[in-house]
Design a protein around this nucleic acid. Sequence first.
DNA 1: CACATGGAATAGCCATGGCTAAATTCAAGC
DNA 2: GCTTGAATTTAGCCATGGCTATTCCATGTG
Lengths: 144, 144
Amino acid sequence: MNETEADDEVRAESFRQARSARRLELVEDYLELIADLIDDHGEARQVDIAARLGVAQPTVAKMLRRLSKDGFITQRPYRGVFLTEEGRAVAERSRTRHRIVEAFLCAVGVSPETARLDAEGIEHHVSAETLEVFERFLERAADA
Amino acid sequence: MNETEADDEVRAESFRQARSARRLELVEDYLELIADLIDDHGEARQVDIAARLGVAQPTVAKMLRRLSKDGFITQRPYRGVFLTEEGRAVAERSRTRHRIVEAFLCAVGVSPETARLDAEGIEHHVSAETLEVFERFLERAADA
DNA sequence: CACATGGAATAGCCATGGCTAAATTCAAGC
DNA sequence: GCTTGAATTTAGCCATGGCTATTCCATGTG
């Protein structure tokens, strides 16, 4: 039954990977959004983050503490939120990936509305390899 | 600022949708896996589910109680797990969607290995519309 | 300068989904 | 038919990510 056990291990790895992607989703969503707010309004306030994510403000406060602890942002009490270099890097990567996934979905024929909704969930599960495939597809579509 | 508020509401909806998809992911993973085990081995034991998902067995037990409460499976103490009609339906839908997503990724040029890993995460976030687009793409690819 | 208002912080609750450790039950083999 | 080993159940812990209600503070305005 060694073969079966090894097989289980391979399958289990997909699930483990999906689970760990899930843990990162929120972090990426927050950082991407914070970057957007800073770029658009010069600052990222908790109320605005909460409104855009559709959650309550204390939920955001709790999450920001975590992001702060993990070195993605800096906070000054009663002041705004700032991205660290690392936080900015993650935000940029997320943003790029998000943009590519959404554009790809549109390119294969999904309506812009649905592409926007689906991309929000899909983006976090797209590996580097798949992302590159999407990019090449977009380039070829642009040429044609 | 009414425009901005409405805009926030629209954006927030994507995130809410992604969050509720996340809640369903586990249910779908379990039901799909249980269906596989029953089809392959005639029964679905907790130890096997645990091994395939890469989690501890009591974690599975807890989840099965929830699936039972929600009417997706039936359990007899110390015996196997059985899918209800509803559970079987969800499993079939998941399985089909999973298969299409994985095949689609392969069709656009992603390696089979990566396609398998990414599909595990992506499948839960693909709407009916997007799935149909993927299917049409596969049909066209088959023709060519 | 005082104070009202709105954003931020804090406290404390709940559900989910992981885990380990221990008790229980079933079933298989002697 | 007993006993032993494996699987299931149960108990109880932890972290995460939601929430409401409340308190605190900073700022703009009268």
